[in-house]
């Protein structure tokens, strides 16, 4: 394997609800940085049925080249068809790095492609870097339930592949009118070659909770004292347009439904801002929110473990601090809410 043949940073582009998935745009942002460091090109790999309309968006978010596989075969995601396209494209154009969003389909696809190529695949990356001179990808990730971070390296194989968690990387501000090169590709594959069929897709529009997608989460813990005390969390969340989360203990106390629980036995969330109010910061809670962009803790105990994880901490009584916060944000954001 001649490493010189492998050039360029690629991002597998996912389409979700008729749009380029946010994680793909984030990866173009991260990929742009890697490509610039390596003085190489950034490419998107777009697979689907009637997807050429998205190409312009990909240029605007940083792609120099877009490889497109447009065929009714790719109408729905299926491992067997999509992996064939990715595999063929890697063999033909030889990228140095290929990134995928660590979504259900992204992980499924990457695992299959890595096995067939074969090459190394780093899972659930949260930190990305590249060695300028050697092109060695430094992909770091949490493992062991979030107890440790590790940098995973793939020294002897190309392409280097990684799945990357949503909401960790930053998309670029789109540059209107930016253009690039479109490369149309085809696969030699027939419907009969594929052993799976998608019979039905059900979108659960009655979204149980939007907390796994929210940019801002206000989470409360037992420190709020009672269900009535927890109202402060709802009010504060409403003022700043945030989703409400909570620790397992408040779920068990019946203050909020289980869908809003953050942590090991609840949801893993990565909002841009996470408020932890009256939450002690048990490891089972931390693993569910530690990758949030900005973590702010309010707790009356200066030794509460949450202060080890947060970026900013206020030692104080939630019943005093949160009402002041509500007022301050109402003013700053020019918003009013009905106090019930």
């Amino acid at each position: 394997m001649n490493f010189e043949d492998y050039r360029g940073i690629w991002v597998f582009i996912e389409i979700k609800d008729g749009k380029v998935a946010p994680v793909s745009l984030e990866l173009l942002g991260a990929g742009r940085e890697l490509a610039d460091k390596r003085k190489s090109q950034l490419a998107g790999l777009l697979i689907g049925d009637g997807v050429e309309e998205y190409v312009q968006t990909l240029y605007e978010y940083g792609a120099d080249t877009v490889y497109v596989y447009d065929d009714p075969l790719f109408n729905h995601y299926r491992t067997e068809s999509f992996m064939r396209a990715v595999f063929d494209c890697c063999e033909k154009h030889k990228p140095e790095v290929l990134l995928y969003g660590a979504t259900a389909n992204g992980k499924d696809l990457a695992s299959a492609v890595a096995t067939d190529l074969p090459t190394g695949l780093t899972a659930d990356t949260t930190i990305l870097d590249i060695e300028e001179d050697t092109g060695l990808l430094l992909a770091s990730r949490p493992a062991f339930g979030g107890n440790i971070m590790a940098t995973i390296l793939c020294k002897k194989y190309r392409p280097q592949m990684a799945t990357v968690r949503p909401k960790v990387m930053k998309a670029l501000t789109p540059q209107e009118g930016r253009s690039g090169e479109l490369v149309r590709e085809t696969v030699d594959l027939k419907e009969d070659d594929i052993r799976t069929k998608v019979l039905e897709i059900v979108r659960e529009t009655t979204k149980k909770s939007s907390i796994d997608e929210a940019d801002i989460i206000v989470a409360g813990g037992k420190g709020l004292g009672s269900k009535a005390g927890f109202e402060l969390i709802h009010q504060f969340a409403q003022v700043i347009g945030a989703a409400v989360g909570g620790s397992r203990d408040v779920v068990e106390a019946g203050w909020i439904p289980h869908q809003n629980q953050v942590g090991q036995t609840g949801l893993t969330v990565t909002p841009k801002i996470y408020f932890a109010i009256g939450i002690s910061g048990a490891i089972q809670h931390i693993v569910g929110m530690q990758n949030s962009g900005l973590i702010i803790a309010i707790n009356k105990d200066p030794d509460a473990p949450i202060f080890q994880t947060c970026h900013y901490g206020i030692v104080g009584d939630a019943h005093e601090v949160v009402p002041l916060l509500i007022k301050a944000f109402e003013k700053a954001l020019d918003r009013r809410v009905s106090h019930v």
């Binding site: 190394g120 440790i148 590790a150 940098t151 530690q290 900013y312 901490g313 009584d317 002041l324």
Partner: peptide, 27 residues
Amino acid sequence: PTIVGKMWPPAKSEGAKRIEGDAKSQV
């Protein structure tokens, strides 16, 4: 193909800044 390089415990305390003062000024 992959090897585990550096390992470290996830970022703690370093980033944590206490916001001092009375409640009003903290807010």
